[in-house]
Simulated scan of single mutants.
Amino acid sequence: MKVNKKYYLFIAMMYMFALQFWIMKRITVFQYLDEIYALVAIPLAVLNTRGKIKIKKENMYINRMIVGLMIFVLGGLLSNIVFNYQSWHAVAQDVFINLKFFLGIATTYYLFKNFNIKKYKNKLNFHAKVLIVLFFILVIQNKVTHVFEVADGRFGISAEKIFFNHPTELVSTTFFYY
């Protein structure tokens, strides 16, 4: 079976986001991985449309969501013009922070819209298990060696966070990959 480039890109993104906290503590550029991923949506949208915007009936919910987001952003911009809440630099940051999640979804859509995830589900499942086992081994070894920080004690057991900022991030990442 020939494996396409999108599979390798998907696996790379899977590992990058799972290990982002560990990587960003060592390589500072990776602190902005989620921002860079969100910003990639803009050139991808431009490259994919190239003047041929078609509104399909089955994609009307996307258009409604875009209109809703535009109303949301314009409402914030207008309120800042009228009431002058904060500097325009802070406004631009707020707009990006509020849209980052949706831009990330758009990036994922453009990068993987023709990717058949069902075709590679066994391989993807293997990589998810590798990450879960890695996290489990790191938690067990930390009980012995105390290489990583712990958050606090809960019910007499230390709340492991290995390289994550909080134990909940470790749990949610593991749950997501499970």
Rank of each mutant, 00 (worst) to 15 (best):
L74E: 00
Y8M: 04
Y178F: 12
T173I: 05
R26F: 09
G75V: 01
L134Q: 08
L77W: 01
F101E: 14
G156T: 15
G75Q: 01
A18N: 08
G153Y: 15
L138I: 02
K25A: 10
I105V: 14
L138M: 11
K25Q: 12
W88V: 09
I42L: 07
Y109A: 06
L69W: 05
V133A: 12
N114D: 09
A128C: 11
H89R: 13
A38T: 07
S158V: 14
Y177A: 02
T145V: 07
N63K: 03
N4V: 02
K119S: 10
N59V: 06
E160G: 15
E58D: 15
K6P: 00
F176K: 11
T173V: 09
V130G: 04
Y32D: 11
E160S: 15
H166G: 12
H89G: 14
Y120E: 05
L39K: 10
L69S: 04
N122E: 07
W88L: 12
G153E: 15
K25S: 13
K143P: 00
V144L: 05
I157G: 14
N98S: 15
K5A: 07
A38R: 08
I81D: 06
N125Y: 11
A151P: 14
K52M: 08
V73I: 08
I132E: 08
Y85W: 11
K123L: 12
V67D: 01
Y85D: 07
L111D: 00
V147E: 11
D94S: 15
F155D: 13
N84T: 12
K57L: 05
L131H: 08
H146W: 03
A38S: 13
N114V: 10
V95M: 14
R50K: 11
I137H: 06
V95G: 14
F21H: 05
Q31D: 06
N165Q: 13
N142C: 00
A128N: 12
Y120A: 02
F175S: 02
R154N: 15
F135P: 02
A159H: 15
N59P: 03
V150P: 11
N125K: 12
F148K: 07
L33V: 08
Q86A: 06
L19G: 00
F112D: 01
A18T: 09
Y37M: 06
L9W: 03
L131N: 06
K113T: 03
F175Y: 03
I55D: 07
K56V: 04
R50P: 01
Y120N: 01
F101Y: 15
D152P: 14
N142Y: 01
G76C: 02
F175H: 03
Y15K: 03
